[in-house]
Amino acid sequence: MKKIILVSLLSVALMSVVDGFINPEYGIKSMIKIVLFLMVPLISAKFGATQNMEALLKPAGKKELAISFGLGGTVYLVIIGVYMFLSPYIDLQGIKLALKEDLGVTRENFILVALYISFINSLLEEFFFRGYLFLGLLKITARLKAYTISALFFAIYHVAIIGSWFSPLIFVLAMTGLFVGGVIFNFLNEKNRNIINSWVVHMMANLAINTVGLIMFDFL
């Protein structure tokens, strides 16, 4: 248990430094994330972690996939609805400026970045937070502890990314949503011990956020 938590804590801390202080351009940041969220867990698992990392990507059943896509569609609509409700309080121009200055994300490259975030970045995060951390802890510690630690790490990881985007109230709401989302993702994976179901929902959530991005960059 200590090894999984320590490796996860160090990876999240290092990624937070990259996101919050170093701010490399998005391609470099993505390569660092692949190392910390994919290569490090694979190496850790090879030298003593309890989970079978290859099994995390085994195909989900048709029923489970249908439920995941249904839930994912609901999440998409909820996020878009929340955005529409809170849009008067969200500074899209400020977010757009922060993306350009911190990550080099502009209207010209946003579509490529959005596709990466929706499909690849979501898979990396599911592999790390749900596959390595949650399912690994679930085998060696209490269920509530596994749920809480993994969801908390998932929320904390996003602090460095979105901490400067919103007002304090909206930020707290976002962090609460991320924690609850982490719990839901864990629940989707607990039965089958893979990450496919949560990846589908996470992907749909990212697609919703990127839909807001399309509005922000005047594509819609």
Rank of each mutant, 00 (worst) to 15 (best):
Q93M: 01
V113P: 01
A151Y: 01
A114V: 09
G48W: 00
S150D: 02
E101H: 10
S164M: 01
I79Q: 11
K58D: 14
G131Q: 00
L135F: 02
G81S: 09
A146M: 04
I79W: 04
F37G: 13
A98V: 06
A146D: 04
F69T: 08
G61E: 03
E126A: 15
V159W: 09
M53F: 03
G94F: 05
A151M: 02
F119T: 08
S122M: 14
Q93N: 14
I156F: 13
V75M: 14
A45K: 02
I95K: 10
L36G: 14
S122P: 11
V40L: 14
D91C: 11
K145M: 13
N52M: 07
R107T: 10
T141Y: 04
L56C: 15
V105Q: 14
F119S: 11
F110E: 09
L92I: 04
S150H: 04
M84Q: 09
K63F: 12
F128V: 08
V159P: 09
R130W: 04
L71Q: 03
V159G: 05
A55C: 02
L97S: 15
W165I: 04
S164Y: 01
E108G: 06
I80V: 08
L144W: 08
A160M: 10
A114H: 03
K63V: 13
L42P: 08
A49V: 07
Q93F: 03
F129C: 13
L123M: 14
L36M: 12
D102H: 15
I67P: 05
V82G: 05
K100L: 13
L99H: 09
I149N: 01
A146Y: 04
V82H: 01
I140V: 08
F127C: 05
Q51M: 13
L42D: 07
V105T: 15
L135Q: 11
G48H: 00
K63I: 10
D91Q: 13
E101V: 08
L135I: 06
G70E: 11
L77V: 12
I90W: 06
T74H: 00
N52Y: 06
A142C: 03
I79E: 08
F129T: 05
E54F: 13
T148L: 12
I80Y: 02
Y157C: 12
Y147T: 13
A151L: 01
A160W: 00
A49Q: 07
L138T: 00
F166D: 11
A66Q: 11
L38G: 07
L65H: 00
F134W: 06
D102R: 15
P41Q: 06
P88Y: 09
G72M: 08
S118I: 04
E108Y: 07
R143Y: 14
G73L: 14
L138W: 00
A66D: 03
F127W: 01
L115G: 12
S68E: 02
S150Q: 07
R107Q: 13
T148C: 10
G61N: 05
Q51D: 08
L152R: 08
A49T: 03
L57T: 06
V75F: 11
Q51Y: 07
A114M: 11
H158E: 07
P59Q: 01
Y147R: 12
I67N: 10
